[in-house]
Write a protein that binds this DNA or RNA. Sequence first.
DNA 1: GTGGATGAG
DNA 2: CATTCTCATCCAC
Length: 352
Amino acid sequence: MLRNPELRTKPLGIQQKNIVVTCNYVARERGISKLSYIKDAEKKCPDIVLVNGEDLTHYREMSYKITNFLLKYTPKVERLGFDENFLDVSDMVRTRLNDPSTKEEVKGHIYGQGQKDDADSCTCGCHARLTVGTQIAADIRSALQEELGISCCAGIAWNKLLSKLVAGTHKPNQQTVLFPEHTFELMLSLEAVRAIPGIGHSTAKRLASLGIQTISQLQEVDQSVLTGEFGNSMAQTMKLLSCGSDQSPVVTTGQAQSISDEDSFRKCQDVEDVKNRIGGLLDNLLKRLEEDGRLPGIIRLTLRKLDKEGQWSKRESRQCRVPSHVFALGNNKTIAWYCVLSNNKTIQMKMK
DNA sequence: GTGGATGAG
DNA sequence: CATTCTCATCCAC
């Protein structure tokens, strides 16, 4: 929509292979959901505009533009995927509170109540700090809109878990603050344990085997029951999360730890074809490596096979170290063959 | 260090 | 359920 503003008012979907991986809010109002099949989406919404999004270059570049923009406010910026960032603004809050011109006004929504007044039961100053937090969020979101043309949601709270959860309560392009009195309310509004970030489908399944499906069940279950299935550390963490407690700090993300390029290799029988496709992935990777400026220490190939019935199997990977002389030669294909030969295996499909 | 599992958007 | 195309972390070996 940034590159083609005419699409703003139209139902828009981003397509990768057979799937609408994401879509704008116009499309969502028409009943399109993320990760739906193209067929279903077109059935519901025949005039949906589809843009191919298999090449993530543009999204990655904008993603880093946004993170770098946020880094002008504080060095404590942690990326989560391509489109979310955590900011620890504690220092900014302290500075603003020392400024006599700072007001008491809350910007945006307050979670769990119409107005803010009953609130001042705290003696620790958290309400004042969170209020300043809403002002900082409003300032940053407004500047982001002005300078990069990006709208977004924000959640203001005292830990990452709660800020993420409360950010999702007013969408799109709005912000919400959580005051401590309403923590329990927010956690219980979630219902399923799966809604807690960090509890994915696998952990949810294991919890279900213990008879735990809702947040309140997780809050009330005896520690020892969890410890039996997950071990002490995980059990402790999950109990805390269920109550809205998250000790994890905002960790500055910095440069990527790895870069990868992949493709689902649809209908690839021919060996020649496979070689070409892997070569293409490698070329893209080398371009990105050059822009990055660093040299890789390791290269890894990842693959998934298709069985007779067209079912995907689990991922398999092979990796090896890349000596720097490989790059001194400046020879593209050398690297992939170095990897393949040094492992003495034939590897097709996916490459990381 | 390697390779699989898991989880995030 | 994954499906797409990434990126990160954890853990057994």
